[in-house]
Simulated scan of single mutants.
Amino acid sequence: MSTLVVHESMWGNTRAVAEAVAARLGDDATIVEVGQAPVPLPADVDLLVVGGPTHAFSMSRSSTREDAVVKGAEPGHTARGIREWLGELPESDHVDVATFDTRVDKVRHLPGSAAKAAGKEVRRHHLGRLVSTESFYVGDMAGPLLDGELDRAAAWADTLSSRPVTR
């Protein structure tokens, strides 16, 4: 089984979660920043894990990424986010997909998240079978991740690796 972990990260928090997930999934997991993510997916990918930050209750847009850079986020990530990348992928019936996001803890109970929006795109455009969606929490817009979130990410990865393969 081959796993591809694709992440979009403005402050490094989503990248840290993606790294924790990929590390737990083992040697068959490849991690890549969304700007370098392949289109189409390699034929041997059985599990696709997609993660991004929640901006304005959804996946980021060019304008929200540009705004994050103005507020101090890492530059160079404004052109392509997970929204655009998912829009480039062809239909697939052979891959399981898991989505995650990072979001500010203070708005934990408000509707909307990048993970849920990405999951809707997966279903709407027949990009694979959505198997899981998860949110991980940061203390403020720039982070840091709350205590225990990387451990939760590793535990989530365990649930992904123990799922039955549907190929």
Results as ranks from 00 to 15, higher is better:
14 T>E: 00
164 P>T: 13
24 R>D: 01
46 D>N: 13
161 S>H: 12
34 V>M: 01
91 E>S: 12
16 A>H: 11
33 E>L: 01
81 G>N: 00
94 H>I: 01
61 R>D: 02
73 A>N: 04
14 T>M: 04
80 R>H: 06
18 A>W: 13
95 V>T: 11
46 D>L: 12
32 V>K: 02
148 G>E: 05
122 V>Q: 04
162 S>A: 15
158 D>S: 14
134 E>L: 12
127 L>M: 07
45 V>C: 02
15 R>N: 09
140 D>C: 09
60 S>F: 06
106 K>I: 08
22 A>P: 08
43 A>F: 06
11 W>I: 01
134 E>S: 14
27 D>L: 10
140 D>Q: 14
112 G>E: 04
125 H>E: 03
41 L>E: 01
63 S>T: 14
70 V>R: 14
153 A>L: 05
44 D>P: 07
160 L>Y: 15
157 A>G: 11
62 S>F: 10
67 D>T: 07
45 V>E: 02
137 Y>V: 01
149 E>M: 14
85 W>C: 00
61 R>V: 01
156 W>Q: 02
77 H>N: 05
60 S>I: 02
120 K>H: 05
159 T>W: 12
109 H>A: 06
144 P>A: 07
93 D>N: 12
6 V>E: 00
33 E>N: 10
8 E>D: 09
65 R>T: 00
152 R>E: 11
34 V>L: 04
123 R>V: 07
150 L>N: 04
157 A>L: 08
17 V>L: 10
43 A>L: 08
38 P>I: 11
62 S>M: 04
10 M>S: 08
137 Y>H: 13
32 V>D: 01
125 H>K: 07
84 E>N: 04
156 W>T: 00
28 D>K: 15
17 V>D: 03
86 L>C: 00
161 S>A: 14
129 R>P: 01
5 V>T: 07
130 L>W: 14
154 A>G: 11
123 R>G: 13
34 V>I: 03
156 W>G: 00
117 A>F: 09
109 H>W: 07
1 M>I: 15
94 H>T: 05
167 R>V: 04
89 L>M: 03
24 R>I: 02
9 S>C: 09
115 A>V: 08
93 D>S: 12
51 G>C: 06
67 D>S: 09
11 W>Y: 15
132 S>I: 03
1 M>P: 15
110 L>M: 13
